[in-house]
Amino acid sequence: MASNLQCWLCERLLGRKVQHHHTVPKAKRGRETVPVHPICHRVIHAHFSNAELARIGGDRGALLAHEEVAKFLSWIATKPPDFHASVRRTKN
């Protein structure tokens, strides 16, 4: 069953599988969550540490400004909602 909601990161429609990303990690006392595709969730955590995400907070623009995330968003834009692929980690 497809959803009418959009992914917080890529803004594509969500598919059958939806994950909830804590904009500030739970480990850093974050409570707010936003719906994301599983692949988008993996990309966020592949490029940002929990400490970085805590500093960024819910600033989606800060994530979009990251060069690798921007490349990913350009690539994923035409993929279907339930598209799946491996994600490469680049953070230390």
Rank of each mutant, 00 (worst) to 15 (best):
H22N: 11
W8R: 06
H45M: 04
A2G: 00
I56L: 03
A65R: 11
S74H: 14
H45Y: 02
S74L: 15
P80L: 10
H47N: 10
F48Y: 07
I44G: 02
W8M: 05
D82Y: 09
H37F: 08
G61L: 11
A77F: 01
C10M: 05
I76V: 14
E11F: 03
M1K: 07
P81M: 06
S86W: 10
L13N: 09
V24M: 10
H21M: 02
E67C: 07
R12W: 01
T90M: 12
L63G: 11
L9R: 00
L9Y: 06
K71Q: 13
L64H: 14
K91I: 13
E11I: 01
K71T: 12
N92W: 10
G61W: 09
I44L: 08
R12A: 09
A65K: 12
V36G: 04
V87Q: 00
V43W: 04
T90C: 11
P25Y: 06
I76Q: 06
K28M: 15
F48S: 05
I56P: 00
T78I: 10
F83Q: 03
G30P: 09
I39F: 04
L5F: 11
V43L: 09
R29Y: 15
E67V: 14
F83Y: 07
I44V: 12
D82P: 03
K28G: 07
A51R: 10
R60L: 06
H84M: 15
E52N: 00
G57E: 07
G30N: 11
E52I: 01
I39E: 05
N92L: 13
H22Q: 11
V69E: 01
V87I: 08
I39D: 04
K28H: 14
H21E: 06
L5P: 02
F83I: 00
L64K: 13
N92T: 14
R16D: 12
T33V: 12
L73M: 15
E68C: 10
H66N: 15
R88T: 06
W75R: 13
L14N: 07
V69R: 03
D82S: 05
L13D: 06
H37S: 08
G30Y: 08
T23W: 04
P25R: 06
V43G: 04
E32W: 08
V43F: 05
R31Q: 15
N92E: 13
A46S: 14
C7D: 09
T23I: 09
K91S: 13
A27F: 02
R88V: 01
V43A: 07
D59N: 08
R89Y: 12
L64A: 12
H45R: 07
F48M: 07
